[in-house]
Design a binder for these strands. Structure first.
Lengths: 115, 115
DNA sequence: GCGTTACTTAAGTGCATGCTTAACCAAACC
DNA sequence: GGTTTGGTTAAGCATGCACTTAAGTAACGC
């Protein structure tokens, strides 16, 4: 079973590869079969499928097979999981900066409440 | 020299490790020295510094040395670079879904313009 | 000046990752 | 029913990554 940390882990891991990011970009424009997905790349099909497997494990991509063709779709909710993580960090730091600014602008009659 | 793809590459790569994400979380709450940053972890100091180097290469963290202590700060603009990438993908897919919905809801007198 | 603190450098190790080729399977096509 | 087409399985390989220990440097505190 995968806890939250591990999920974000495999998620960023999945996005860390340029091939996989291109595959995500392709899929954000609409579903595609495995061979469609493979077309832009020079690498072998098994290599592409291995990348796809990693995207699936991360939850970013869902696939289902009909006849002999496997169709791949993106899962937006997982995409936004990463987005949220980044956003939280950024906001925290921005709040920190704001408090610092306020502190510097203020006359010395008030304490900063850090912690 | 690092192009846009490579930058996002090293950026997600940097975020793919739980140790490094925890370091980012720590730094989003305010600057820290190397040894402060290392404190929560069981690993050796050189290991922590290696992680830090990767965070620096990604641009996520800036450091400067004063006397013998190196102080680390987060760079929000780089954080939001990743955020933007994710957001663009998500929005693209959402627009796609909207168009699909519209198409399905509409009577068959109009063409979908997928291309 | 001498120890402690805060890193830094270097070298090595084991395991994960990103490929490859070769062979296989089964739906679709004629 | 034989051949493409679309994908799968398996095995192997080179490189990268996340550590480790050991030894070194340089500022600071007394």
């Amino acid at each position: 079973m995968l806890n939250q940390t591990d999920r974000i882990d495999t998620l960023f891991q999945a996005l860390a590869d340029p091939t996989r990011r291109m595959m995500v970009e392709r899929l954000s424009r609409g579903p595609a079969s495995v061979s469609e997905l493979a077309k832009p790349f020079r690498m072998s099909l098994p290599a592409v499928v291995q990348h796809l497997a990693i995207l699936e494990q991360s939850g970013l991509v869902k696939t289902r097979k009909l006849g002999r063709v496997r169709t791949c779709t993106i899962d937006n909710s997982v995409l936004s999981l990463a987005e949220t993580w980044l956003n939280e960090r950024r906001q925290e730091w921005e709040r920190k900066l704001d408090r610092l600014e306020t502190f510097l602008a203020e006359p010395e009659d008030e304490e900063p409440h850090n912690g």
